[in-house]
Amino acid sequence: MLRDVVSPLTYHYQTWQQTVLELEALSKTYKTGDQALTNVSFSVPAGQVVGLIGPSGAGKSSLIRCINRLVEPSSGRIYLGETELTKLSGRALRQARRRIGMIFQEYALVERLTVMENVLSGRLGYVSGWRSFLRRYPKTDIDQAFSLLERVGLGDHYNKRADELSGGQRQRVGIARALEQNPELLLADEPTASLDPKTSRQIMRLIQSVCREMNLPAIINIHDVVLAQNFADRIIGLQAGEVVFDGPPSALTHDVLTRIYGAEDWGQVQQNNESQDDEALFSNAKVLERS
């Protein structure tokens, strides 16, 4: 039944070679009886940025958290490369988690630690307990942290406490922390939900470009359809825990959006879809303001 829904829109990836993540019939039912995910299957090749869209409560957040097992899936299988994540526990699970970087909605930085400590916490899965306790990280980790901070544009802020930074800066630290893990896969749970429109686009562009540079695949759970269209290579639409769309951003039509979100006037989305860069978006907004 699921195949029937998806097949007309299934997106063929000739350009992507190697599969990094594979989900097989993933389902999640919470103890309360809520069915968050039903039979979700798809695979993500190296370097692909996937935008995961859908209404609130569609199971986007549960899906992201099932992949690194912050939420336990009820059934189904998850493969990261050759490793079956769903079989792991204890130490092996922690070693698999360090291969998956994660970016959070409210940044989820440890507010009272310095920026540097937050970035270095990305190495926790690699270093021993006493090294992390004494903050004596290997030199390569520290060098990498410095260069990542420079890459995200926060080179001078390393000894500031995380709660001294603005929202956009905090999310940059969050990205640096995820990249410090040298991940094979990046997960992002609503990375722009707490940011203003301009900062949101900057953050999305940063994620997109680091993914390009490192040939890093990403799954970005995002409620803003326009942002998803602009920065993702592929869109997956979730509705009540099921995949109802899987295809290129250009295939997101009125019908598809209605299937995902329910009936609404999608005119505005289409209009924005055409404007591919920030300037155009902001001049649109100005036009709207004047009229």
């Binding site: 030199k139 060098d143 990498q144 410095f146 260069s147 990542l148 420079e150 040298n182 540079e213």
Partner: peptide, 9 residues
């Protein structure tokens, strides 16, 4: 190593 090491600090 993901990014080039610009400085060793």
């Amino acid at each position: 190593m993901t990014s080039e090491v610009t400085s060793s600090r």
